[in-house]
Nucleic acid binder design. Structure first.
Lengths: 190, 190, 190, 190
DNA sequence: TAGTAAACGAGACGGTACGTCACGTCTTACC
DNA sequence: GGTAAGACGTGACGTACCGTCTCGTTTACTA
């Protein structure tokens, strides 16, 4: 997407319209036609740059959520993970989370979209988290025999479970306790 | 409303056709029209009994997955949970899991369907698991101060995370180790 | 339709409901389902006694319009025809005319219905008119060499033309003049 | 709205398919779906350009019947009217007449369609006929005190009556005699 | 007077067509 | 030369009625 000014203007309008419609009417109410109309853009222009409604919405989500941030490293692994987890929860509770849920939903029957979700959203964040956990392992705070990826999963899976299948809203309320339980199981054997 | 013989015949044909089409062509390829045609049933008959494609597919999934089973209780909580988790994983790897994934996907932008998923699929299974964990708490094997529902989440969230967001296929491979880590954090303080 | 009280009660309710619905919502808005619901009668009961929506509506029209009346014979053929024509026009301008128009419309692509219309509505009236014209012929007021049926047509066709194809409402306004012109052409050659 | 090449191709295919289906299966057997399928056109394309089945069929009729023709003027008013009436009868006896009957039938419960029938079919023909009659009045062949529109009605109403309500087929057999009777009543008083 | 067969109300059923929506492609006109 | 605009063929949507088919339930006649 290296095109000239015209293209860039369209790109912005399309992403903004996509996000706004998806947030307001839900992923189901998001249609290419509505985006085109709302963005003042022709449908073929959208199809030229985005393969499907799913990747379009994913692009809009990424556009809003921004890059994944580096983990803090205060030396306190529980505090650092809790802090970061709460940031994620906060983000998922907003409009971006709503749209993201829709994208994940669509990805359940669209492998290409699922791969794109993993690559553009999950992978960078998993990577950042792994880095921090690696330092904790090096510091002797966590067992060295559990693959980092599995640790990340244990920590984040409950958040996604709540978002995708939970009856109650996501809440940062018990994050710290949960992370403590989880890390308890990942500490080196005494 | 009495469901006479014809109704029951139709119901069976519709659920079977739904499951078969959803498994073969994916949730996206599942259409009411195709179900009606394949089941030899009129579309209005489907709409009469099922509110949406989502609840129809959910019904078909429930029809195939059957009732949730009681947990075994061998006295070994790790073994019992591992056994049951592997049964769940096995089920989710089959056609029922494929269709179920599609239903969960659709539920991301359909609150009614989400509620139905929780009520008909998750709640009974959570309840059975909670019962087993309660006995473990009573036996002093697990901390009494963590709500049972949270324990269940910690145990099952990674499975659903893998199914819905994971890059690799679900596999029962490391289930036991994972459950050991998790329970480690839930044991009573020494 | 020789059945007992039950049948007769249903017959009345069905004919009344049919007429009322057809008058209020137009022939297009008349459905067997609505008639059944409004008459408090099962659909099969209607299908048992009436072959189609068309003959049902025709029955309702006949029920309301009543039998054709004998022509007056004052000795003044112009006055008698004018009087009778105005009665017909009056009837066609009311609800019965509205429903009748719908029936005639349906009869355009339903030969059975067309035949029924001719037999139950037109034929008796044509017959009565022919009788009066026959007396006028016998009295030397009209040419004997024009078939009576053709005379009737010349007299009544303009009324039906107005009803079925006219832009203005039917009106008795110029009936007398029109009949005078018409009869002028049917008088014996001087 | 510009009708480009594709539009025109579709328009032709739709009108042809409409006429052909209506002629073969009757107005009742004419469905938008069948037209779309037979014309190789999408249903929305038909709904985009035609408001209803009725106006579509009317368009098809007009397409086949062509423009109304000017009346001949041989100086013999009876001959001219007879000639033209026979042309009309001939046209109404063909497929166009069959379809036209269906349209008129539908117009009985569709005021918009009725108006369209009058405007596109009847009005131009009435106008042409009126012109010829006006010349006959000017030539002293017909009474000047009868509105031309009423004269036209007297002349054509029997044809439409036969088509819409008659038991026998339309036939040009007695046209001349009928017109002579009718004009007899419209001649100037001696 | 009780028993029974019909006709009944109700309404689900397999269908057909409806008119609409959004899809993704393609063409035209403009800038 | 790329773009907005939007018509196109396609196909599924969810709805309205169709005419048929059980269902019990009256109800009026028969025994």
């Amino acid at each position: 997407m290296l095109e000239g000014m015209r293209s860039e203007r369209s790109r912005r309008a399309v992403l903004d319209a996509t996000f706004e419609i998806a947030a307001r009417k839900g992923y189901t109410g998001l249609t290419i036609e509505a985006v085109a109309a709302s963005a003042g853009v022709g449908k073929p222009t959208i199809y030229r740059w985005w393969q499907s409604k799913g990747v379009l919405a994913l692009d809009a989500v990424n556009d809003r959520m921004g890059q994944s941030r580096d983990f803090p490293d205060t030396g306190d692994i529980v505090a650092d993970l809790t802090h970061q987890a709460n940031l994620v929860i906060e983000q998922l509770r907003g409009d971006a989370g709503t749209v993201f849920r829709g994208v994940i939903g669509a990805a359940q029957s669209d492998p290409d979209l699922a791969a794109a979700v993993r690559e553009t959203i999950l992978a960078p964040r998993i990577s950042k988290c792994s880095d921090r956990l690696a330092r904790a392992v090096a510091a002797g705070e966590l067992r060295p025999d559990v693959p980092l990826y599995n640790m990340v999963e244990l920590l984040y899976a409950p958040i996604y479970y709540r978002m995708l299948l939970g009856s109650a809203d996501l809440s940062p309320h018990l994050t710290r306790a949960r992370i403590e339980y989880t890390l308890q199981g990942l500490r080196p054997r005494p």
